[in-house]
Nucleic acid binder design. Structure first.
Lengths: 187, 187
DNA sequence: ATAACGTTTGACATTTTTGTCAAATAAGTG
DNA sequence: CACTTATTTGACAAAAATGTCAAACGTTAT
């Protein structure tokens, strides 16, 4: 529950500078209690970091493994990414900034080239050869999916400012995006 | 020069948790000197924040204003965004996280609906009506440009890990993207 | 009841980060 | 040069964040 509160603060609220006090307050416990379960801040952070990596990877795995026809799989992938990003817009950025700020080597990704990802890249490759997708490196296709689904929500405060969008209007735009993104990917 | 060092650390290296000591070290001066020019950390941060907003806006302005034909304008826009993002991958994210972590109201965007942006959205609208762009809200087109150009570099550590890409390979992918993105936007 | 255990907390200690000051040094000016 | 002004810094002070400990509390089992 402490962990979940921390995730809420980091992944949903985007308060990447949150202190143990901030987390304890949000969890309605004393900071000492937090230290009872996590010897140090770093330990909590490592835990949150690793689970975030696994959550991300797990969802990818589940989907890429499925036996759906390619286009449906991509549609599901877009939906999944959109929903995940709506719930945790700042999770990716948490991972990245922790990795970059990490002087010791505590925050790292595991090094295995995940087989389900390889397999899915192969699928993409086939679709490109079949002419169902614009010609490009398969990784680029993946990168495009991720960018189109994740980025807008990540920088929503900027978009709202630049384009003068109310929360409501922005939300409506995001809901339109699923269809739009799939259309962009296939033609 | 202190300011530039800070920008380097925040925008290029992505070390969003950097302390005044970190900045002073990188600038090869004592922390006291830093305080001679900036009374407080907050003052430096505010300065960096505001200049980042203006840099971003300025580039946008310069380009959107230009009298190029639409497609060329978009190509330039993509090139600009790609180059800016290569140089300062974490600038946007710096802005966002500062805005979100800001309890007092220090870090905010100015509220004016910028006229050059409105104008450009109108241009997009025309192109959509002319059938040169897939049917969508003009803002979506802008959001797509920004996402496709900025996001991959923002999360490059994740992409490198997920897809097992060396720095070199990743760099090559990014260079291919200009053409790719433009193709995606127009059809 | 009481013993054993897990949990919570306030008070304190330590470390990290930020901010201040006065003295030393360098650089420009009449 | 003498004089002012700008810059740099080490030493110290204050504040913020983290970490520790022992006492209090609650639950469960015997």
């Amino acid at each position: 529950m402490i962990k979940d509160t921390a995730k809420e603060i980091f992944f949903s609220e985007g308060k990447l500078h949150a202190t143990t006090q901030d987390i304890a307050d949000a969890a309605c416990i004393s900071r000492t209690s937090l230290h009872y379960y996590y010897r140090s801040r770093d330990e909590l952070m490592k835990r949150v970091f690793n689970e975030a990596v696994n959550e991300l990877n797990g969802k990818l795995y589940k989907l890429m493994e499925s036996a759906l026809p390619f286009k449906e799989k991509v549609e599901e992938l877009v939906t999944l990414f959109l929903n995940e990003t709506i719930a945790y817009p700042y999770r990716e950025i948490f991972l990245v900034t922790e990795m970059l700020s990490d002087d010791l080597g505590v925050f790292k990704l595991s090094e295995e080239g995940a087989p389900h990802i390889r397999a899915f890249l192969k699928e993409i490759s086939k679709e490109i050869k079949a002419g169902n997708i614009m010609k490009m490196q398969p990784v680029q296709f993946m990168i495009n999916i991720i960018a189109l689904t994740s980025h807008p929500l990540l920088v929503s405060p900027l978009h709202k400012g630049l384009f003068q969008l109310s929360d409501n209007k922005f939300c409506r735009l995001m809901n339109e995006r699923k269809k739009l993104i799939v259309e962009m990917l296939f033609r």
